[in-house]
Lab assay of single mutants.
Amino acid sequence: KYSDMIVAAIQAEKNRAGSSRQSIQKYIKSHYKVGENADSQIKLSIKRLVTTGVLKQTKGVGASGSFRLA
C-alpha cells in the first residue's frame, strides 16, 4: 500500500523539516517494486494522508513541498 510506503520513507529519512515528494519517490522506487504509475499514485496518496491528518505539510502547497508525520 502506497500510504504505508510513504510513512516508511518519511520515518527512514528522519529529517526535522520533513521529506520532499521527490525524496519520498526516490526511497519508494529503491526499496519497493512499484509499477510505472508510481509517481502519480504517490502524489495522490500524499494528498490523502494530509487530508486525513496522518501527514503534516511543512512547506509548499498540494503534493509539492515537504511533509512529516503528524
Results as ranks from 00 to 15, higher is better:
Ala38Val: 09
Asn37Val: 05
Thr58Lys: 06
Lys59Trp: 10
His31Met: 06
Lys33Gly: 07
Ser30His: 09
Ser3His: 11
Met5Ile: 02
Val34Asp: 02
Met5Asn: 00
Gly53Gln: 03
Val50Tyr: 02
Gly60Ile: 07
Lys29Ala: 06
Ser19Met: 10
Val54Ser: 02
Val61Lys: 12
Tyr2Ala: 01
Asn15Ser: 10
Leu49Pro: 00
Leu44Cys: 15
Lys14Tyr: 08
Ala70Glu: 04
Leu55Gln: 00
Val34Asn: 03
Ala9Gln: 01
Arg16Asp: 10
Ala17Glu: 13
Val54Ile: 10
Gly18Val: 03
Gln57Lys: 12
Ile10Phe: 01
Ala12Ile: 03
Ser23Phe: 13
Phe67Lys: 02
Ile42Arg: 00
Gly60Pro: 05
Ala38His: 05
Gly60Leu: 06
Gln11Cys: 14
Ala17Trp: 14
Glu36Phe: 10
Ala8His: 05
Glu36Ala: 13
Gly18Cys: 15
Lys29Thr: 07
Asp39Gln: 06
Ile6Asn: 00
Ser19Pro: 04
Gln22Ile: 10
Ser23Lys: 05
Ile24Val: 03
Ala8Asp: 06
Leu49Arg: 02
Arg21Asp: 07
Val34Lys: 02
Glu36Met: 09
Gly18Ala: 04
Ala8Leu: 05
Asp4Ala: 10
Leu44Glu: 13
Tyr2Ser: 01
Arg21Gly: 10
Val50Thr: 04
Lys59Gln: 08
Ser45Gln: 13
Ala9Thr: 01
Ala63Glu: 12
Ala12Gly: 04
Thr58Arg: 05
Ser3Ala: 14
Arg48Met: 13
Gly53Thr: 01
Lys47Ile: 13
Gln57Glu: 10
Gln11Met: 14
Gly35Glu: 06
Ser19His: 05
Asp4Phe: 14
Ser19Thr: 08
Ala38Met: 07
Val61Met: 11
Gln22Arg: 08
Gly62Met: 06
Val34Ser: 02
Val61His: 12
Ala9Asn: 00
Ile10Met: 05
Thr51Trp: 10
Val7Cys: 10
Ile42Met: 01
Ser40Glu: 14
Ser19Val: 11
Gly65Asn: 13
Phe67Glu: 03
Ser45Tyr: 12
Ser19Glu: 02
Lys26Gly: 06
Ile28Ser: 02
Lys14Gly: 15
Thr51Ser: 12
Met5Cys: 05
Asn15Phe: 05
Lys33Met: 10
Leu69His: 03
Ser23Gly: 05
Leu69Gly: 02
Val7Ala: 12
Phe67Trp: 07
Asp39Ala: 09
Ala17Thr: 09
His31Pro: 00
Asn15Thr: 06
Ala63Cys: 14
Ser64Val: 09
Ala9Glu: 02
Gln57Val: 14
Val54Pro: 00
Lys43Met: 13
Lys14Gln: 11
